[in-house]
């Protein structure tokens, strides 16, 4: 009997792990695209918060969850436009301006949450979408093929990102702009144009990551600061992944499994204060960052460097 209990628990944990990987995948792949073009978008956390609130509120008001998704994408694009304007056109120090975007997103989501709802409201999020046949595979079917559509979309984005970055002209331009903007410029590529596009797409994906935290859950609700550092972990993931889509996939699962694990520890009381498992994902992030710098794989050469024609930095 206890064996059975343990098996269901492990399946439950793995299922939760796949679900929890979704926001990391959306935000991490978006951030990777942005960094590949040479822009460090540190405001992901704030954009996620705005996406989480806007999607929830739009879905709550309209009664249609897909309206929520569209609203999140719109809000993400707006935040992305602001981020791109500040870091590409105004050439701000990206590490600092990103913190500004984070605080702004925290403020906007908190302000309008208090104004419009004021207290926690729950609605039904996206239902599970069992994939025919595949969902009947023992264990794997439960873990991988009985999730909602956003989980599948996030997983599909991994190969899509790979194709876009390595197999399309657009991807080639992105890499050129991130590695050697002056050479790209001399070939007639609009460096700033490519960066705007990448930052905006990345921000839309961050907002979608946020929407998953609200309407992507079975019991959808928005609470203040719902992202709880996931946006920053997504940025860390890009370093861990060494700017490769497959690395993002691996990293997202590593973190989500740790998250799922620590949530379980909190539920089953094993006599340690619950603050310790809550610390776990953050400590692991630091350790993983420290270890992943070995091997000296450098990121895009022009990362965080604004482009000014004729000025080499």
């Amino acid at each position: 009997m206890s064996e059975f209990f343990q098996a269901t628990m492990i399946v439950g944990m793995l299922t939760a792990g796949v679900r929890l990987a979704t926001p990391f995948l959306f935000a991490g792949l978006g951030e990777m695209l942005s960094q590949r073009s040479g822009v460090l978008n540190l405001g992901v956390e704030g954009i996620m918060l705005v996406g989480a609130f806007v999607s929830f509120y739009a879905a709550y008001q309209s009664g249609n969850l897909y309206v929520g998704i569209l609203a999140a994408m719109g809000a993400g694009a707006m935040m992305g436009l602001l981020t791109a304007f500040v870091s590409v056109t105004m050439k701000a120090v990206q590490g600092i301006s990103g913190i500004g975007i984070h605080i702004l997103g925290l403020g906007i989501s908190g302000l309008f949450f208090r104004l419009t709802m004021g207290s926690i409201v729950t609605i039904r999020g996206f239902p599970r979408l069992r994939i025919p046949l595949l969902s009947r595979i023992p264990l794997l079917g439960q873990v991988l093929f009985s999730q909602n559509w956003m989980v599948y979309a996030a997983l599909l984005l991994v190969p899509i990102s790979w194709v876009v970055i390595y197999k399309t002209t657009f991807g080639l331009k992105v890499r050129a702009v991130g590695e050697n903007p002056h050479a790209a410029d001399s070939l007639g590529i609009s460096v700033n144009g490519v960066r705007y596009v990448c930052v905006i797409i990345g921000s839309i994906m961050a907002a979608l990551a946020g929407s998953f935290l609200t309407i992507g859950q079975h019991e959808a609700a928005f609470v203040n600061n719902i992202a709880a550092g996931r946006g920053f972990i997504a940025v860390a993931l890009v370093y861990f992944a060494k700017w490769r889509p497959v690395g993002i996939l691996g990293g997202a699962f590593l973190f989500s499994m740790i998250d799922a694990f620590q949530l379980r520890i909190q539920i089953i009381d094993i006599g340690i204060p619950y603050e310790i498992p809550v610390m776990l994902p953050y400590i692991v992030t630091i350790l993983v960052l420290a270890l992943s710098t070995r091997g000296r794989v450098m990121g895009p050469t022009a990362l965080t460097k604004p482009f000014i024609r004729g000025v080499h930095t």
Binding site: G46, I96, G100, I101, L104
Partner: peptide, 16 residues
């Protein structure tokens, strides 16, 4: 929470 909105805007505009 309005104070965060103002602070965020201040950082963004000062850095720019």
């Amino acid at each position: 929470a309005m104070v965060y909105v103002i602070q965020g805007l201040v950082v963004v505009s000062v850095v720019s």
